[in-house]
């Protein structure tokens, strides 16, 4: 009985792992196959031969080099801005008792519920009025802060024991040094988790760049991929798959590297409390 249950459990896990990984595998299979081996009759899990030229073609035609540079600058700037804006705000919302904090918190939480549809068009027009359409600042600024980030970091900072804050106060630390010397180190896992989260949200973002980026050299990786796919050469499926793999790889690698911290940060497990 127990043995049977175990077998079922492992079977389920195996199925889940295969389903989770298969699209990635299929992307690589298509990316490595010669161009005429994308659609075929019957089931063929491995390509007839390996053709790395697809990657070169994708890199050239989808201008992925430029796209990756744009993507890195955009994602990096957004991350820095979000950390600068979110960390101090989260600290105040979590640990400072002054008038108005309750209202500020209510606003942050309310913002979490506003779907992107509501702000999309006015923000688009506003960015254009400000002359930032088709520019890096136009891609970056609307994401300068994150209500989600403030909220997540606040929850992390809530679990920092008040005795520590008290100690900082008695030591004569002002808010700035309390933040840099006590709170940030303690909230490290949460900050790391949010950073990883922010990076893959914005690296993968498609809709906003689709609206804002118009010059070919401003296309972000997903946008470059979509343009390649919808263009006259979009039938070149093996190159498209190679492009998809190139666009996917950085976040997957980042995730593999940061995975342990990410999960811990999401759970707050490292914060003593």
């Amino acid at each position: 009985m127990i043995r049977a249950l175990r077998a079922v459990k492992w079977l389920l896990i195996a199925v889940a792992v295969v389903v989770a990984l298969f699209p990635f595998y299929w992307m690589l299979r298509t990316a490595l196959a010669p161009a005429d081996d994308v659609f075929f009759d019957g089931i063929s899990l491995v390509p007839t031969s390996i053709d790395f030229a697809n990657f070169a073609r994708a890199w050239d035609k989808a201008q992925l080099g430029d796209a990756i540079v744009t993507g890195v600058i955009m994602t990096g700037s957004i991350l820095v801005l979000q950390l600068i804006t979110c960390i101090p705000a989260a600290y105040v919302l979590a640990k400072v008792r002054i008038r108005g904090v309750g209202i500020a918190l209510a606003i942050v939480i309310g913002c979490l519920l506003v779907p992107v549809q509501v702000t999309l068009i006015p923000t688009f027009i506003g960015i254009n009025v400000a002359g930032l359409g088709d520019s890096l600042p136009g891609l970056i600024l609307p994401s300068m802060t994150s209500a989600f980030g403030i909220f997540l970091l606040r929850q992390q900072m809530m679990s920092i024991p008040d005795s520590l804050m008290e100690a900082a106060r008695t030591d004569g630390l002002g808010h700035v040094r309390t933040l840099t010397n006590v709170v940030i180190p303690m909230a490290g896992p949460g900050i790391a988790a949010f950073s990883v989260f922010s990076v893959f949200t914005h690296w993968n973002d498609y809709m906003w760049p689709l609206l804002i980026a118009r010059s070919p050299d401003l296309a972000t990786p997903p946008l470059a991929l979509a343009i390649f796919q919808q263009g006259d050469i979009g039938f070149d499926y093996s190159a498209l798959a190679a492009g998809a793999a190139i666009v996917t790889a950085p976040v997957v690698i980042l995730f593999l590297v940061a995975q342990r911290r990410f999960v811990q940060g999401m759970s707050g497990a490292e914060i003593p409390g």
């Binding site: 913002c111 979490l112 519920l113 506003v114 779907p115 992107v116 702000t119 999309l120 923000t123 609307p142 994401s143 994150s146 209500a147 989600f148 980030g149 989260f197 922010s198 893959f200 949200t201 914005h202 690296w203 993968n204 973002d205 498609y206 809709m207 906003w208 609206l211 997903p222």
Partner: peptide, 8 residues
């Protein structure tokens, strides 16, 4: 992956 973090 949305333009703002509102989804989250």
């Amino acid at each position: 992956a949305l333009g703002t973090e509102n989804a989250n």
